[in-house]
């Protein structure tokens, strides 16, 4: 929410400012112009995603390594609360003891990781981009710090979940069993219905996966966009009359605070929803239609 933009002296056009902030630091050096281009990779999404995930897991590993069945320390108690919360959700949804051994930790990873990636939204929108611009020496360097506000980040997660759904479908039902289900459900076992069933199944899997990734992406993207719009108010301060500029600056302060507080809810809620949907989809992979 801080408005320390590199072009404060020459206030940028609002559209330019927002678009610049929505450009990823990628291998092509400029924002991607085509919808899908697998020759490009977003360094920023990957970097922040991996660093956040790795440091969170490292921290949890440090705590788990010294876990004791006796009186737990505060860190262990906190981690236990998390594990217990996730474990209870997993127990109510996944009824397979064997599967739970991986799905439990998976759900914990999803929750923590998504939460941390979402929480990058709380950093002032210009803080890390500005630091990167100073560091790289390029005043126009692109950088996005919220990996979940990048569709690649969220779809990467949801496709990972989809692959796990395939894995558990095959593991629980066998290749034949799952293939049978793909052509006989949901309409019924009849040669004429094989094709419609398969089409329905494909639609079902793809809609689940896309909505799974899109829901998180949409929430975080919109959140980031609103932070950017709020930041614009403060950014306009030097260009307007003292009265109007002050009012906008005050608006930035008040709205930015309010939105950040409200965003705490969104960040946690979206992480939780993403985890729950992961569990639900994996739970469906364990059940026949």
């Amino acid at each position: 929410m801080a408005t320390a933009h590199e072009t404060v002296t020459v206030a940028p056009d609002a559209g330019e400012y927002v678009l610049h902030h929505l450009g990823n630091l990628n291998s092509s050096g400029h924002p991607q112009s085509t919808m899908i281009d697998f020759s490009i990779i977003n360094y920023d999404t990957l970097f922040f995603g991996a660093v956040l995930g790795a440091s969170a897991l490292f921290l949890m590993w440090l705590i788990a390594r010294k876990a004791t069945a006796g009186v737990p320390g505060r860190a262990q108690a906190a981690l236990e609360i998390l594990v217990e919360m996730v474990g209870n959700q997993v127990k109510t949804i996944i009824h397979n003891e064997e599967s739970r051994r991986f799905i439990g930790p998976l759900a914990l990873t999803v929750f923590i990781w998504v939460f941390l990636m979402n929480a990058m939204d709380f950093l002032p929108v210009d803080l890390l981009p500005l630091l990167w611009q100073k560091l790289s020496g390029d005043p126009h360097a692109y950088l996005r710090v919220v990996p979940t506000a990048d569709l690649n980040g969220t779809l990467g997660l949801s496709i990972g979940v989809l692959l796990l759904c395939f894995f558990y479908n095959i593991r629980i039902k066998g290749v034949g069993g799952w293939a049978h289900e793909l052509i006989t459900a949901p309409f019924g076992n009849h040669p004429l219905l094989y094709i419609p069933n398969l089409v329905m199944q494909i639609v079902e899997f793809s809609s689940k996966t896309i909505s799974h990734g899109m829901r998180l992406f949409g929430n975080m993207y919109a959140g980031e966009l609103i932070f950017l719009l709020i930041a614009l108010m403060g950014l306009a301060f030097p260009t307007l009359s003292p009265v109007g500029g002050s009012l906008l600056w005050l608006g930035h302060l008040v709205l930015g605070t309010l939105w950040a507080i409200f965003h705490i809810l969104i960040v946690v809620l979206q992480a939780f929803i993403f985890m729950m949907l992961t569990l639900v989809y994996l739970g469906q992979a364990h059940q026949g239609h």
Partner: peptide
């Protein structure tokens, strides 16, 4: 915009 980040993220 979708790109190779997707695969890396998975």
């Amino acid at each position: 915009y979708l790109n190779a980040t997707l695969l890396a993220q998975i």
